[in-house]
Computed example of a mutant assay.
Amino acid sequence: MSIVVVGASLAGFSLVHDLRERGYDGSITVVGDEIHPPYDRPPLSKEFLHGDVDIALGETDDPRTRWLLGHRAIGIASTATGPGVTLDNGTTIAGRSLVLATGARARTLPGAQAPAGIYTLRTVDDARAIRAALRTARTVVIVGAGLIGSELASTAATLGVQATIVELATDPLSGVFGPLLGALCADLHAANGVRLRTGVAVAEFLGDEHVSAVRLTDGTLLPADAVIIGIGAVPNTEWAQDSALHIDNGFITDAQCRTTVPDIYAIGDCARTYQDALGTHHRCEHWSNATAQARIAAACIVGAPPANIPTTYFWSRQYGRMIQFAGNRRPDDEVRFIDGDPSTPSCTALYERAGEPVAVFAIDNARLFTRYRKQIERRPAAIATP
């Protein structure tokens, strides 16, 4: 019987690949709400804004896999043959297993629907609109100093656009890297001519038909030919709210990506998965998490031994620098530089707990970073130590 996948982005595409790699030869139906074949999202905030680059994830011409693109799921269905999904055209598709990989959508702000010239970045169509705007803009205001906002600011700067980042938090990226290394990343903006305003929020967007400025809560007026909002994402789960699934900031799953309903799995940005290392459920929006959870779910579906649950890993390219992180840090972990320091062009730092490395951070030091990442992945017990 067929396996049904709802979501045709990285997580869904990777699941299909991993099922085939594990010998599953049955039919797979993949439903996607975008009309575009599966594509890679990380380049959208970087290389793609400079010009078209190949972002296709791979081939979709396997006759055993049916891709229903441009269709939206509107509800979970229970059928005699197994779990299914109802689509916006009224049809229901069921299989022996149902995998939810519906991803997330960009958060926005009140008033961002008008005037024109205010963007969020999630899809390739969003990126094309932003790219067109940056070709003519002289000034851009980016709301949010997270990884996406920082990458957008970096790209805007390389295109010759004056960028200002507005961030509500007083310590950007401290929640991700901790205050010391978060500040190190934030300092890259000033070093590259990007203004960073922290501890302040957007009060309103000004302009009649097209945005012309952003007023901040402290009264500051920032001229803006374009505004890009990068303040995180909301999991796409509302369509299934009338089902028996447990939903709380994502589809709740166990460590093997199984939801609270038998034979239904959730992976990627829409899933809030139990993580042994953290001792709680956690929703992770990183590229590596989507591919890792696809492997885990594929193994579970075909009855193979459980796939290894990797540590968190992500990277970001900003101002020509490569920032990498792996592991699971906690606020009280000790930070120790093992190569360089905040004043040097490249550096590597370990997060340590009870004297053991539990996470690693690096700027422009892939070799040393990889060595410690592998060491941390070989010591999962150290990561889970309270």
Rank of each mutant, 00 (worst) to 15 (best):
T370E: 13
R373Y: 04
I309M: 04
H17T: 11
T102N: 07
L216E: 13
A213K: 12
F251I: 10
N89A: 04
T385S: 11
S78Y: 10
I74D: 03
H189N: 07
A56H: 15
I3R: 03
T170G: 13
L278I: 12
R66W: 07
P63M: 11
G103W: 01
V5R: 04
P179F: 00
A114N: 14
L19N: 07
S212M: 11
D269L: 00
T170P: 00
G82L: 02
D187P: 01
T311L: 13
A299F: 07
R378E: 14
D339W: 03
R329I: 13
T155D: 11
A381R: 12
D88G: 08
V302E: 09
V176H: 02
G32V: 01
A157W: 11
D61H: 13
G207H: 06
T139S: 15
S243P: 11
D187N: 15
A292S: 14
L100E: 01
E59S: 15
A384H: 06
R135Q: 06
N89T: 11
I165L: 15
A201N: 14
S346K: 12
T259E: 01
I165P: 02
L49K: 12
C270M: 11
P331K: 05
G175W: 08
D61Y: 11
I28L: 11
A226W: 00
F361P: 02
D254N: 15
T120F: 00
P310G: 08
L368H: 09
R135P: 00
P110D: 14
G303A: 13
A290M: 07
N289P: 09
L69G: 03
R41H: 10
T260Q: 07
F177S: 05
T259K: 01
H281F: 08
R330H: 14
R215P: 09
L222R: 09
I247A: 05
L134T: 04
Y313R: 14
A101V: 09
G12A: 08
A307D: 13
D61L: 12
R107D: 07
G51H: 14
T370G: 13
L68C: 01
A299I: 09
T344A: 03
